[in-house]
Design a protein around this nucleic acid. Structure first.
Length: 959
DNA sequence: ATCCTCCCCTAC
DNA sequence: TAAGGTAGGGGAGGAT
């Protein structure tokens, strides 16, 4: 329960999910090997780190026996053979592999487990991997009890040595939990571990909660809490799977070859149907997704009221009178905070009711009034014969993948909504195949049903809203096309609750206005709607009530924030526990950030704190109870790209909010203002590694000189003549202390054909040494300001003139020489010797008055946008032999990020670093200088919103 | 006016 | 027992 801190407006924290729930797939320690033959999907594999494609991979494994039929393993920790092999073995021998331990997991495979893990494994036997391999070797399913890693019993109890029970490995053999226990006579230590009826008739079966007092229940104080929580959280799974499919669609579109095997298979039936000219949007949604998947293994329950929950029974045993009193108190408080007119989830439950949430329920259950998100206790009151099924996260993932794979074989005009729902623009499909909407609907629904074994419903319309509302009518297991002519009439009777965006609060407000259907809203005053719901929401509601929806499908999803929050199991007894958890959460959220190769600029800490009048023990086991919610975000524009920074900022925000840690009930970290990380460039990073003294942190200030003293370069005789700056050069400390880059010898530059990018870079970096200084005079001077004809030629005429004028360049044509051994322009390689012309700077810029960045001075590139300049530089870098692999965009991007950092040292380092690179690229120290100023200014202006503060910040940065 | 922060609301 | 996450749209009200 949350309360707005300011207006104390009561709200109820209700998470009602439609149907699909699954848990975040923790990062598999194993990486699946490569592309498994799905050409269409193959490239995605590398990028996704084996997430969604795991299932596809599995499907490629040929089943050779049914040895492990009925067995579902979860591998915990490092094993020999490793996890992925065990996985493959299971697939090959008819077993099931669970990436997470779920309630249907029959065995945990582990080679060793720390105590902390053991105590939370519950009742599932932990078995050594050799059980699997030995069984395969002997072609018999061996009794796992010989392979137990440890005994689940209390240590005081004697370990019983069981005789091996070996069963023939006939294909129909099933090691069902119940049947395997029957092997033993009388009670034994394993019985408790194994008797766990999967299917419960909630109203009748009563299982006494078993809790080993030696192993107190896990809360967020436990280091392994986060992982276990995520492994069991349906909401987490829904979220992460949804995000993954959105990303998947984008990636597939990027990699698509434009061929769709499914679509090609559709026969052109002489185009007997209508040829659709107008856009047709399909909305496709699996019917009570979790239940449908669960029923695949429990066909006996088809047609019965079924719900997916964690809890197995609707009534709790052993509720103390204190607990009952607390519950009543919390429920009352809960009701107080409920928005006026809103439905409560707790008004039909009592102190004994289970508060396990129903993730999904069958249509038969819905007839009793049971809804997704309802507490099991309440549901059982509505329908005592309700059957419950445990979660099967792996199964949901598998079906989701099949669903998306099926649709993707027809089109990639897909907007992923969640793991079981998407919008598809089928206009092209209809046009090409000549199918009518109805023919297509039949076809695709059949195929999905065949492939997934689960029913789905499809709705069609001219926009997403219409398609979606059509699906409502189509459900369950049906299809409906809402035609343009019918929209108006169809909308009138639609209840407002059916509209997307109309949830509990909005519905209550509308109800108070006497509005119940879209028809009501159609004739209501827009002003009234807006004053009640807000500007935007009022407008949207009005439009939607008329069936209007102008939002196009979004095929490419771009993430705007990354977050991780936990509002369950938060019970800290010390501040250290709290900070430790914050650290875990920081790691988690950082991993997600780095998974998508981004960095952030803003961090928000979100806390749920027990309301002052709420009982300390919540009604729901380890729930958050009635809470106030607080949030606070960072105000600096600090680059957030490590878990250390995340933790530091989160901790600092926590200290600002400073709630009593014992009253914490929820913690979340959100990162926003995301930016793409500069793509990693191996050449560049290798280069930096090889020349650490020139890394960003160590580069020196730009060179300065007292007098305009020139002299010929000394490091390369043959190039000296080209350089007209025949003045005395004062060798500075800076240039002399710099390490010599690889590939250069005595500062001379070897030009080698087929040189590596790194060598190239080094070579040119060495050349940038030609910027030399005399530190007495504080003047900037480009000692090596050669401007190639080619460079000038690339620029537009006016710009060329402008540069020459602005820089007062008296360019002089110099006879080309043999320069193969000179540190001259990299361009010479692509210009024939006779054509080669090098212009030289004869007149140098006037002395710079101060050592600050001359803001008023215009860059030679000032009239060009960066976008215009980029292709020019790109051309230089791409067409020549060198520096061939420098990605100019990457460099610029890299610098933009550095440039917008507030820290002056970093800014300055950035400047120096960028300057070096650009000097190399342009062979024009001065142009490079101003280009960088531009880039950095752009970066800062973009970041700081063009305020005066930007200029001040920039100006005060010593360069 | 416009932006930023701290919420609320919604969807799955 | 129970696993109440996560991302995005948007608004109120203060800061600039």
């Amino acid at each position: 329960m949350q309360t707005n801190k300011n207006d104390k407006k009561p709200t109820e924290m209700v998470k009602s999910g439609e149907g699909m729930k699954i848990g975040r797939k923790r990062k598999d320690k194993t990486t699946e090997d490569e592309d498994m033959g799905f050409g269409h999907w193959g490239g995605y594999m590398e990028a996704k780190k084996a997430k969604l494609l795991d299932q596809f991979h599995d499907s490629e494994i040929k089943k050779v026996s049914s040895l492990f039929e009925g067995i579902a393993i979860h591998v915990n920790g490092l094993t020999k053979p490793p996890l992925h092999e065990l996985k493959n073995l299971m697939a090959a021998h008819g077993g099931i592999f669970h990436a997470y331990q779920v309630s249907s997991t029959t065995h945990i495979i582990a080679s060793n487990l720390p105590n902390v893990k053991i105590k939370h494994l519950g009742s599932v036997p932990v078995v050594k991997p050799s059980w699997i391999t030995d069984s395969i070797d002997l072609k018999k399913l061996l009794d796992y009890r010989r392979y137990l890693l440890y005994s689940n019993q209390s240590k005081s109890q004697p370990r019983i040595d069981f005789p091996a029970v070996e069963k023939p490995s006939t294909s129909g053999f099933s090691v069902d939990e119940k049947s395997s226990t029957s092997v033993e006579s009388g009670p034994n230590i394993f019985e408790k571990a194994e008797v766990k009826p999967e299917v419960n008739s909630v109203g009748t079966t009563k299982v006494v909660a078993q809790q080993n007092p030696k192993f107190p229940t896990k809360t967020a104080s436990d280091p392994s809490f986060l992982e276990e929580f995520y492994n069991n959280s349906r909401l987490h799974l829904i979220s992460t799977l949804g995000a993954e499919f959105k990303q998947l669609v984008g990636e597939m579109r990027d990699r698509s070859d434009g061929k769709f095997p499914g679509r090609e298979r559709l026969t052109h039936k002489d185009h007997q149907g209508t040829v659709y000219i107008h856009t047709v949007i399909m909305h496709i949604d699996m019917d009570c997704f979790f239940v449908s998947v669960g029923l695949k293994n429990h066909p006996d329950l088809r047609g019965k009221p079924v719900a997916i929950t964690h809890a197995r029974n609707g009534q709790l045993a052993n509720v103390s009178s204190d607990q009952k009193a607390d519950r009543e108190r919390e429920f009352a408080l809960y009701g107080e905070r409920l928005p006026a007119g809103a439905m409560s989830r707790v008004d039909k439950i009592d102190a004994q009711s289970s508060m396990s949430e129903i993730a999904s329920c069958s249509y038969e259950a819905r007839k009793f009034g049971i809804k997704n998100g309802m507490f099991l206790g309440q549901a059982v009151k509505l329908c005592p014969e309700l059957k419950t099924l445990p979660y099967d996260f792996e199964g949901y993932k598998e079906v989701s993948n099949m669903l998306y794979k099926t649709i993707a074989s027809y089109t990639l005009d897909i907007e992923a909504v969640s793991c079981d729902e998407m919008y598809v623009d089928i206009t092209k499909i209809l046009k090409e195949s000549g199918y009518t909407v109805e023919q297509w609907a039949n076809h695709i629904r059949n195929e999905i049903s065949k492939v997934t074994g689960c029913p789905c419903s499809t709705g069609f319309g001219a926009n997403r809203l219409q398609a979606r509302l059509a699906t409502r009518k189509a459900k369950p297991a049906g299809q409906y096309y809402l035609q343009a002519d019918d929209v108006e009439a169809y909308m009138a009777d639609i209840p407002l609750s059916d509209l997307p965006g109309v949830g509990r609060a909005t519905l209550a407000k509308l109800k108070n206005l006497g509005l119940n259907t879209c028809g009501d809203v159609q004739v209501a005053s827009l002003k009234v709607l807006q004053s009640e719901l807000g500007q935007k929401a009022g407008e949207t509601l009005k439009e939607q009530s008329n069936g209007i929806d102008n939002r196009p499908l979004n095929f490419h999803h771009e993430r705007k924030s990354v977050s991780a929050e936990v509002n369950y199991g938060i019970r800290f007894q010390t501040i250290e526990e709290c900070y430790n958890f914050l650290q875990s959460l920081s790691n988690e959220v950082y991993n997600r950030l780095s998974d998508i190769n981004m960095r952030a600029r803003c961090l928000t800490l979100k806390l749920l704190v027990r309301a002052a009048d709420a009982p300390v023990e919540t009604a729901k086991f380890l729930g958050h109870g009635v809470c106030d919610s607080l949030s606070k975000s960072t105000k600096t524009n600090l680059v957030i790209n490590s878990s250390q920074i995340i933790f530091k900022e989160a901790k600092s925000l926590y200290e600002k909010l400073n709630p009593p840690f014992a009253d914490l009930r929820g913690v979340g970290i959100q990162l926003s203002k995301l930016e793409k990380n500069a793509p990693t460039n191996t050449a560049l990073s290798n280069f930096l590694k090889q020349a650490p003294e020139r890394s960003v942190e160590n580069t020196e200030k730009p060179v300065m000189i007292e007098k305009v003293d020139f002299k010929e370069k000394t490091d390369d005789k043959s190039s000296e003549k080209k350089i007209s700056l025949n003045k005395k050069v004062v060798q500075t400390k800076q240039s002399s202390k710099r390490g010599r880059p690889k590939g250069s010898k005595n500062g001379t530059i070897k030009t080698t054909k087929n040189s590596t990018p790194t060598a190239s870079l080094n070579r040119y970096f060495a050349k940038s040494k030609n910027i030399e200084v005399n530190q007495k005079s504080q003047q900037y001077i480009p000692v090596n300001s050669q401007i190639d004809m080619d460079v000038l030629k690339e620029l537009p005429e006016e710009l060329r003139e402008e540069i020459i004028k602005e820089y007062q360049l008296n360019v002089k044509k110099v006879e080309a020489q043999d320069t193969t051994s000179k540190p001259a322009s990299r361009i010479e390689n692509k210009v024939s010797q006779s054509e080669k012309q090098v212009y030289q700077v004869e007149k140098i810029l006037p002395p710079k008055p101060t050592n600050t960045v001359p803001m008023s001075r215009k860059s030679p590139f000032a009239n060009l946008t960066w976008e215009q300049v980029k292709p020019i530089i790109k051309k230089w870098t791409q067409s020549g032999d060198e520096p061939s692999n420098i990605d100019i965009e990457m460099i610029a991007d890299h610098f933009k990020h550095l440039a917008i950092d507030r820290k002056i040292e970093i800014l300055q380092s950035a400047f120096n670093f960028l300057h070096r690179i650009f000097s190399v690229l342009t062979c024009n120290w001065h142009a490079a200088y101003f280009k960088i100023v531009d880039i950095m200014q752009q970066g800062m202006v973009a970041r700081y919103g063009g305020t005066l503060a930007v200029k001040r910040k920039f100006e005060c940065c010593e360069m």
